[in-house]
Computed example of a mutant assay.
Amino acid sequence: MLGKKLVTSQKRGETRALCLGLGMVACSVMMYFFIGITIMPSYTNSVWTKETTCRLLKANIKDKVQCLFNNGAGDENIFQYPCLEVLVDLNSSGEEVMLYHNEETQERNPKCSYIPRDLKNDKEVKMLIETAAENFRNHQTFPCYYDPEQRQKSVILIRLYPPKGLFFAFLWPSLMLTGGVLIIIMVKVSQYVSVLSAWQYKTNI
């Protein structure tokens, strides 16, 4: 009687462990899919891949400039908000190049180097713009990214998804997938050993 209870308990534990492993594998696959449709397109479409050094030439604040704003959904609206324009010298070439905060900044408004997320509060927007301009003036030379194939003449300050960030994005689903597969393998090995032990016991009888 005790032996049957132990076998039943063992089977329940194996079933739960197997479900856990399958659940981890399923979650990791969903995370891979999510990364594939959100992060990967932005990473592969970015042309600013080469890091270099930029030297500040100008950091102008255009107060209440009428700028064409694209919200990312294809609709364009005209807003009145302060606009920061930063021009830099790329690799000491002497050529003035427009600097953008990241890849999305140029898409939102090619006239502005930096655009705060929330444009509703004019005082807060102006304060953020002035702070960004002051940071540029305090750091005359800084790393930036440019297009090595020169499809884009502009440069960006930071990449949304650099290779290091992409590595960490894939790290967690990979660990979860590995853990789930290991759990499934361990359950299957345990079941195989149990069956083999039972077969040997019957043979010895």
Rank of each mutant, 00 (worst) to 15 (best):
K153D: 10
Q200P: 09
K5Q: 14
R108V: 09
L56H: 03
P143G: 02
L57S: 07
T8P: 01
L160P: 01
A59V: 04
Y161L: 04
A17Y: 03
C19N: 11
R55D: 06
G74R: 05
E149P: 08
P162Y: 05
Q80L: 14
S197M: 08
L56M: 07
I39T: 09
K164Y: 09
I61H: 02
F69R: 05
S28M: 04
Q106V: 10
G179I: 05
K5D: 09
L166M: 14
T203F: 15
N91C: 10
E103T: 01
V155T: 02
F136I: 02
G72N: 01
T53A: 07
T44D: 09
E14R: 02
V187N: 00
R117I: 11
R151Q: 15
P148G: 03
L90D: 00
N60R: 14
M24V: 08
T131D: 15
Y81E: 03
K126P: 08
E134Q: 13
F167M: 10
T203W: 15
K4H: 09
S92Y: 09
L84W: 00
E124R: 13
I39N: 13
Q200T: 10
G36V: 06
V47D: 09
V86Y: 01
R151F: 10
E96M: 06
A26Q: 01
E104T: 12
R137N: 11
G36E: 05
D89N: 00
R117Q: 13
A73K: 15
I158C: 04
D63W: 07
Y100E: 06
I35D: 04
M98V: 07
E76I: 14
